[in-house]
Design a protein around this nucleic acid. Structure first.
Lengths: 149, 149
DNA sequence: AACAAGTATCTCGCCGAGCGAGATAATAGG
DNA sequence: CCTATTATCTCGCTCGGCGAGATACTTGTT
């Protein structure tokens, strides 16, 4: 019916990885009385912070694929738990900038640190050409998955 | 604070890929009046079918990280939509074997086919050593993420 | 064989995440 | 200024998933 091909093994492996990472995230969420969405939000916030960008409520909701009502509830939840702070935008006072608390960053590192460490360790075992192929494949899949919004 | 390192770029890229694939799955779910969990369930079912294994309600719930009540509701939903069939276990009549309908398989291929095709195309551009490094990295991350259940 | 213990699924009642619709507040453009 | 636009929030609601416990079938024990 479909030709198997040795490439399919890697495709299925990639999917298996995303499933496993999803479950890993869900465990972190459960252990801290949070929901998967809350964790995804914190990750998005830390990403923005690392890139030196401000994350507003609207952009956060868009990044997670939930609407404005859901986003407000999400930020309420995170704020109530002390994971984020709401800060009114300085230049545009309609906006609400969301800042991650130091405590949430540490909580995240405690759980995801070992996994990240292991991944970095694995990557150290490859030479530049191998790293380039990994980078190229992941980048290509990301682009392909982003098509058709 | 943290040493950046060129490896971190790939770690963040992998995370970006999982985020993008998650959104891609959510779009498929929305367009077909389903929820992300339903799609994850169908994928798990097709995986099992491809591996020639029977998937029961209990194993499905475990694979998705939801409890038995939620699993029953999930299977009800999928059955109502015509995506799966319930079949009483032959040997052990307590079990309920879940079978995916041909129609659901085609629906999935219509949406995920192009993405899978693009991934395979990308992989064809690498030689055996490069494929081995991609396989090795993904396999290693999967194992690392599976630790600590 | 009959009974207890174990296992797989289902039912019931409930909580709360996320949605649609629309209100409110701030900015931008003519 | 007055209107259109943008950003967030409020309200009411639906329904996915949970905990507790019921039900049905299987397996081990005596």
């Amino acid at each position: 019916m479909h030709k198997p091909g040795p490439e399919m093994e890697i495709v299925h492996l990639l999917r298996a990885v995303t499933v496993e990472l999803g479950l890993h995230t869900a465990r972190f969420a459960n252990r801290n009385g949070m929901h998967p969405t809350d964790v995804r939000a914190l990750i998005a916030l830390m990403d923005a912070s690392r890139a030196g960008e401000e994350m507003t409520a609207g952009r956060l909701g868009a990044a997670l694929g939930i609407n404005s009502a859901g986003t407000t509830a999400l930020v309420d939840r995170l704020e109530r738990a002390g994971h984020v702070r709401r800060v009114r935008g300085e230049r545009d006072r309609r906006k609400v900038v969301i800042e991650v608390s130091e405590e949430a960053v540490e909580l995240g590192w405690a759980h995801f640190g070992p996994l990240i460490g292991r991944a970095v360790e694995l990557l150290r075992g490859y030479d530049e050409r191998e790293l380039a192929s990994i980078r190229g494949f992941l980048g290509g899949v990301r682009e392909a998955a982003a098509q058709g919004d």
